[in-house]
């Protein structure tokens, strides 16, 4: 069954890091990659990202859907930028080296190509890391780590509960819709969109009502087992930090500082080879 967390249980140094570490690293890493357009730095991040991905023993096929999705999105992003703003690179780097003309105002410049290169590098610097996080963090550890980075535990637990109930609700939705289809409600593509939307509403009402029943039971069960008693709570999945956790956090913090440092040195977010 599909779940938003596609946790893949394998033995690797990345899996062994705690969820909180991975979450903190993810935050630092994405800030570092987002803020800088320094090509050398992005290339470093991209290489590191891909290296970590291999270290985690994930296979490409495990995340093929996500990668396919990202590649399409990346291409679309690039094409749209070129279509709407073919002189974007020129505006940023301040020089203009024309390579060739496609048609009308669509003139390919070295600056524009260089900008696109940076954009693609950005994808390579961040996406493997995000996939890594999603695939190597146990969902329950994720809730624990949210709490550890300062999110209120009630909110963090709500996330865990949602993850717990998503498969159940998917299952229930399927059962309800099948029994309604048996009574004649058409949910397949044979019907018009408006009719299908109306029919979907017919499925949602029993789903909502039975979910409300569930909520009453679950909130009673939680209260009977002392949820909300203290201002803090501990987590079964909140594994203690080890040396490699600290190391990972320090490295990603250094990368973030490096990104800030480069912005200062470059006098802006961009590294300009054309000057």
């Amino acid at each position: 069954m599909t779940n938003i967390f596609n946790y893949i249980d394998r033995q690797s140094p990345v899996h062994r890091l705690t969820g909180a570490t991975k979450l903190i690293c993810l935050i630092f890493w994405t800030f570092a990659a987002m803020s800088s357009y320094d090509t050398r730095f992005l290339a470093l991040l991209a290489v590191l990202s891909v290296f970590l991905f291999t270290l985690s023993r994930l296979r490409l096929r495990d995340v093929s859907f996500m990668i396919g999705f990202t590649v399409v999105f990346m291409l679309l992003n690039n094409i749209l930028i070129f279509v709407f703003s073919p002189e974007h690179g020129v505006a940023i780097y301040g020089t203009r080296h024309v390579l060739f003309t496609i048609v009308g105002r669509y003139i390919v410049t070295r600056e524009q190509l260089f900008f696109h290169l940076n954009l693609i590098l950005k994808y390579f610097a961040t996406i493997p890391f995000v996939l890594l996080f999603v695939s190597t963090t146990n969902p329950s550890e994720f809730a624990a780590s949210l709490n550890r980075v300062g999110v209120n535990y009630k909110i963090a637990y709500a996330v865990a509960l949602a993850l717990r109930y998503i498969p159940d609700i998917q299952h229930e939705y399927r059962d309800i819709s099948l029994s309604l289809q048996a009574r004649g409600v058409e949910l397949s593509r044979k019907e018009s969109v408006i009719k299908r939307l109306k029919s979907a509403a017919t499925v949602l009402i029993p789903l909502i009502l039975s979910s409300l029943d569930r909520i009453e039971i679950i909130s009673n069960a939680m209260e009977l087992r002392s949820f909300g008693k203290h201002k803090k709570r501990t987590w079964y999945m909140g594994y203690p930090f080890t040396r490699s956790d600290f190391l990972a956090i320090i490295i990603s913090l250094l990368l973030l500082l490096g990104s800030v440092f480069l912005t200062v040195v470059n006098k802006g977010r961009f590294y300009n080879p054309f000057l």
């Binding site: 969902p139 069960a221 008693k229 709570r233 501990t234 079964y236 909140g238």
Partner: peptide
């Protein structure tokens, strides 16, 4: 089924201990 709170068996059993702030090893 409806009173099963945790994502796994272990976490569900641990739920009350978590709320009572029992330490990791003890839990």
């Amino acid at each position: 089924d409806a009173q099963f709170i945790g994502l796994t068996v272990a976490e569900d059993i641990a739920f009350v201990l978590e709320n009572d702030m029992v330490s990791f090893d003890d839990m």
